[in-house]
Simulated assay, not measured.
Amino acid sequence: MSATEHVEALKAKHSDLDKLIAEEESRPHPDDIRITELKRQKLKIKDEINHLAPH
């Protein structure tokens, strides 16, 4: 997998996490621990994208 393909895959994962966070937040009783973990994963992916993406 090339670096560009890897970055695109990470961006897709990042988007998926956005959707999961939105779904969890829209529930009647959202799980704050789950939301925090999803946001942590999203931030980790964003950091990796920024590290890999050409500036």
Rank of each mutant, 00 (worst) to 15 (best):
M1R: 13
S2R: 09
A3V: 14
T4M: 08
T4A: 15
E5L: 10
E5Q: 13
H6W: 05
H6E: 15
H6V: 11
H6Y: 12
H6L: 13
H6T: 08
V7C: 04
V7Y: 00
V7D: 01
V7E: 02
V7W: 00
E8A: 11
A9S: 13
L10H: 00
L10S: 01
L10C: 01
L10R: 00
A12S: 09
A12D: 09
K13D: 15
K13Q: 15
K13C: 09
H14F: 13
H14I: 10
S15G: 12
S15F: 11
L17G: 00
L17R: 01
L17M: 04
D18E: 15
D18H: 15
D18I: 08
K19E: 05
K19I: 07
K19G: 07
K19D: 07
L20V: 02
I21T: 08
I21D: 14
I21L: 06
A22H: 05
E23G: 03
E23W: 10
E23S: 06
E23Q: 10
E24C: 10
E24N: 12
E25W: 05
E25Y: 13
S26H: 14
R27P: 08
R27D: 15
R27C: 07
R27N: 14
R27W: 10
P28H: 15
P28C: 08
H29R: 14
H29P: 02
P30Y: 06
P30E: 07
D32I: 10
I33M: 05
I33L: 04
I33W: 04
R34Q: 15
I35N: 02
I35W: 01
T36D: 11
T36N: 07
T36Q: 14
T36I: 02
T36R: 12
E37G: 00
E37S: 01
L38I: 00
L38Q: 00
L38A: 02
L38D: 02
L38V: 01
K39I: 02
K39G: 10
K39Y: 02
Q41H: 13
K42H: 12
L43D: 03
L43R: 10
K44E: 13
K44N: 11
K44A: 14
I45M: 04
K46P: 01
D47K: 03
D47L: 04
E48P: 10
I49H: 03
I49M: 01
N50P: 00
N50K: 08
H51C: 06
H51N: 09
H51I: 00
L52I: 04
A53R: 05
A53C: 04
P54D: 14
P54F: 11
P54Q: 12
H55V: 03
H55E: 04
H55G: 11
